[in-house]
Amino acid sequence: MLFLKSTSVTKAPGIYEVDVAAKPPGKTFGIFMATDPDNPPNAVLTALAELGFEPTHQQNYVHRDKGKVLDLHFQKNGTDLFNGWKADECSNNLAAIDSLFGNVGIKVVPRVMSLAEAYA
């Protein structure tokens, strides 16, 4: 999900990159993070769990610049059809995500994936 250019710079301690994205039509967002497995962002991970986001994917790999990366994906079920978020849930969850990452100095810009990206 994330295209990580380098592991030499972090956006916050233990976090290389964050993407907040939704599959079309774009009401239910997931959180995709590239983290440093040797210096995990435990406070952020704990806060995500407290907000109800559950891990759905985890994969370790070595980046082409030789840095170690732990790729993490999180989702939170809503009360709409197929566990999607209703409009009020979407607003509340995006505000909570913005606050969480803003507190560690990361500006998130939620986006809707292209169909090709969402179903690749």
Rank of each mutant, 00 (worst) to 15 (best):
D38V: 03
A96D: 14
P110E: 07
H57C: 01
R64Q: 09
D38S: 08
D88E: 15
P13K: 06
L72R: 00
M1R: 08
K66R: 13
L2N: 09
D36W: 07
P24W: 06
N39L: 12
V62D: 08
I106G: 04
F74D: 00
G52H: 10
A116F: 09
I106Y: 06
N92W: 02
A87P: 07
P55Y: 01
G78E: 06
E117H: 11
D80N: 11
I106F: 10
E17R: 09
T28M: 03
V69P: 00
A47K: 15
T79A: 15
A95K: 15
A12E: 02
L2W: 04
G102M: 10
F29E: 02
G67F: 03
E50H: 11
Q59M: 11
T46E: 15
V9L: 08
S91P: 01
H57W: 09
Y119H: 07
I97F: 07
V69N: 00
W85K: 05
K11C: 04
T46R: 14
E89A: 05
Q59K: 14
Q58R: 14
N60C: 00
C90V: 10
E89Y: 04
A87I: 13
K5W: 07
H57E: 06
L48C: 09
L115C: 01
W85S: 04
T7Y: 07
K66H: 13
Y61C: 05
L70H: 04
V108N: 08
G14F: 00
P110V: 04
D98E: 12
R111L: 10
D65H: 08
G102C: 13
F101C: 10
P41V: 05
N83S: 13
P37K: 05
H63C: 03
L70D: 02
V108F: 11
A96K: 15
A43D: 12
E50T: 12
E50I: 06
D19G: 09
L4C: 09
G52F: 09
M1V: 10
P13D: 07
K5V: 06
M33F: 07
A49Y: 06
